[in-house]
């Protein structure tokens, strides 16, 4: 069965010939449409490389990457990305930051001027959905870190991407804000049912949010475990204090500890 994102036997190395670092070797993963996948692993295992692969920012030396049944050979504009650093542009209002992708991606780019009002309404609605209603006119530096990260999620979603790529988006936030944003993310996924690949160090975050958790080995990275998380949705935040939840976290933690020793 083919998935929405299919990565087959990918090998990828950085650097000049003779002095290269093998980042990924024999990487295989398949993610279904609408699935929420999390990727965890020891640091430096090539998780961020995986992000760039799936969005077509880099192409593998061996193996293939398919998104939506199409071989990826260049940037796939059906993806939205958000990183740990919100990287809002300080000269634009929050609303205008959120709408930035519309100025790039077709067909929105061509329609933006004509249907400005409709697009603005859409962006405002999205901001409201993440709890930033009424903050559109504020500049990013007037927002807290958590609020900037919410706006960052909106920017990643404004062009209705079929695939959302998240690279430790909540890593720099305090514990309470992080839990709040987990719930924001949970609700966004429930409402819009896009496919998500979340790269994270936080095992509880992975287990709470994802349908499937992939564990990567140390460099060169490959998938050493695929773990389905079958807690019913919608998941209450109290789930993270339950025994069944903690068992999964423990198992994953042990796997990563092993992978680190092997490195």
């Amino acid at each position: 069965m083919t998935g929405f994102v299919d990565i087959r036997n990918v090998r990828l190395s950085y650097g000049q010939a003779g002095d290269e670092t093998l980042a990924l070797d024999g990487l295989d993963m398949s993610i279904q449409e609408g699935e929420f996948a999390a990727v965890v692993g020891p640091s430096g295992c090539g998780k961020s490389t995986l992000m760039k692969l799936a969005t077509g920012l880099i192409t593998p030396q061996e193996g293939s990457v398919e998104v939506a049944q199409k071989e990826v050979s260049g940037p796939v504009s059906i993806a939205g990305m958000a990183f740990q650093n919100p990287s809002m542009l300080p000269w634009r209002s929050t609303l205008s930051n959120v709408m930035l992708p519309l100025e790039i991606v077709q067909p929105h780019r061509a329609n933006l001027r004509r249907e400005k009002a409709a697009y603005t309404a859409k962006a405002e609605e999205l901001l409201k959905l993440v709890g930033l209603g009424g903050f559109g006119e504020k500049f990013p530096w007037q927002l807290s870190g958590g609020m900037q990260q919410r706006a960052n999620l909106c920017r990643a979603l404004i062009h209705d991407p079929a695939l959302l790529m998240l690279d430790e988006p909540f890593g720099a936030l305090d514990a309470f804000t992080r839990e709040e944003l987990w719930q924001v993310m949970r609700d966004l996924h429930a409402e819009k049912s896009f496919t998500v690949i979340l790269v994270t160090h936080d095992l509880r975050e992975a287990v709470y949010l994802a349908d499937t958790v992939f564990v990567m080995s140390a460099r060169p990275g490959k998938i050493i475990e695929r773990r389905e998380v079958s807690f019913p949705r919608p998941r209450s935040i109290d789930l993270i204090y339950e025994a069944a939840f903690n068992d999964i976290v423990h198992d994953l933690r042990a796997l990563i500890a092993e992978a680190r020793v092997a490195a």
Binding site: G56, A79, G80, M81, L100, P101, E103, V105, R155
Partner: peptide, 23 residues
């Protein structure tokens, strides 16, 4: 320019000129 910002825009299919003009 922050590399993350560049990645976000390039993944959307932005050309070099777009990145220069917007960021």
């Amino acid at each position: 320019i922050e590399p993350e910002m560049e990645d976000v825009l390039r993944a959307l299919g932005a050309k070099k000129l777009d990145i220069m003009l917007k960021v």
